[in-house]
Amino acid sequence: MDSALSLCGESCPSGYYPSISTYQASCGGTSSNWLTRCEVVKGSSLSVCGASCPSGYFASINTYDTSCGGAFANSRTRCQVITGAPFSTCGESCPSGYYPSSNLYNDSCAGAFANRQTRCQVVTGSSLRVCGTSCPSGYYPSSNAYNYSCGGAFADRRSQCQVVTGSNLTTCGTSCPSGYSASGSGYRAACGDAFGNTATTCRRL
C-alpha cells in the first residue's frame, strides 16, 4: 500500500486519508460529483482534508483551503502523530487513553473546531485534574470547581478524579463506580453545583 488513489466520492479506504477533493462531473450520481485524492497514512505529519485525523494522530491546525472543496467544507487539518503527552489538539476532546486538562481559544483551530484547543494528558497515576464532570474509566470525581482554563466546552468546570480503589469511597453525584453500591448520600460543597453539591458513599460489593 504505497500509491495514492483518486476515487469518486468523499471518503477514502482504511489506511488512506483525503488530501484533495475537486468537482468532477464524471463522478455524478451517488458520489455527489466529487473526486477525492487519497494518500497513504504514514509519516509524522499529514495534511488532511476535513476535520478528522487518522487513528494515532491529533489535529494541530485547521485552515480554510479550497483544494479540499465543498465535500470537506473547504477545511484542511494538519495532523501530527501522537508520540507522547502532553499535546494540544484542536477541538474539545482527547483520544482514548488521554484526558483534557485545559481548553482555550486558539485561532489556529478554525472551522469545525470553533477556535478551541484542548491540552491532553496521559491517563496515569492515582489523581487527575480533568476538565468537565466526567472522569476516565477507573476513576471517580471527588470534587468539582469553577476553572476558567477549562473553557465553555466544559462549562468552565474541573473535576478532581481519584483512582477507584479500597473498600469504601466517596464520589461526587449519586452514582457509584462499577463494583460498588451506594450506602448513603449527602451535602458536599466541594462537589459544586455541577453535582448538585451532593456526594455519595460507596461500598465495594
Rank of each mutant, 00 (worst) to 15 (best):
C79N: 03
C120V: 07
A145Q: 14
C191E: 05
Y57F: 14
Q24S: 14
A25S: 14
G28S: 15
N197P: 02
G84D: 12
V41I: 15
C94E: 05
N197D: 13
C131G: 01
T200S: 10
G186K: 13
P13N: 14
A114G: 11
P177E: 13
S26N: 09
I20R: 15
P177F: 11
Y146N: 10
G84P: 11
V40T: 11
Y187G: 12
C202S: 06
N106K: 13
R119K: 14
C109L: 07
R129N: 13
F87N: 03
P100Q: 10
A145Y: 11
P136A: 08
S142P: 06
R157N: 11
F58A: 02
L35W: 01
V40L: 06
C38G: 03
A114M: 13
Y139S: 07
R204L: 14
T36R: 02
C176L: 09
V164T: 09
T133L: 02
A153K: 04
F87P: 07
S126I: 01
G173F: 08
A71W: 00
Q121K: 14
S47P: 00
S55N: 10
D65H: 02
C12N: 06
S55E: 12
D107L: 08
G9S: 06
L104I: 15
S137F: 01
S14E: 15
V41H: 04
P141K: 10
S55L: 06
A51H: 08
C150R: 09
S88W: 00
S178H: 07
A59I: 02
R129W: 00
C27V: 02
C79G: 07
G186P: 04
T201C: 00
G111L: 13
L205H: 08
C202V: 03
S108L: 12
S96Y: 10
V164M: 08
Q80D: 14
S159R: 06
F195K: 04
S21F: 05
S159P: 06
Q160H: 14
A155W: 06
G70A: 08
T83E: 13
A114D: 13
V123H: 03
C131Y: 04
V164H: 05
C53N: 01
F113A: 07
Y105T: 03
L46T: 07
A85L: 05
R129G: 00
T171F: 02
N115M: 05
C68W: 01
S181A: 11
S3K: 15
C202N: 03
V41G: 02
A199K: 01
P54H: 07
S178M: 06
S88H: 02
S3P: 00
T89F: 04
S88I: 11
C150T: 09
F113E: 03
D107A: 15
N33K: 02
E10Q: 13
Y98C: 04
I20N: 12
T174I: 11
Y139P: 01
E92T: 15
I61W: 00
A4M: 09
R129A: 14
I61K: 12
S181W: 14
Q160G: 09
T170G: 05
Y139N: 04
D65F: 00
N103M: 12
P54R: 05
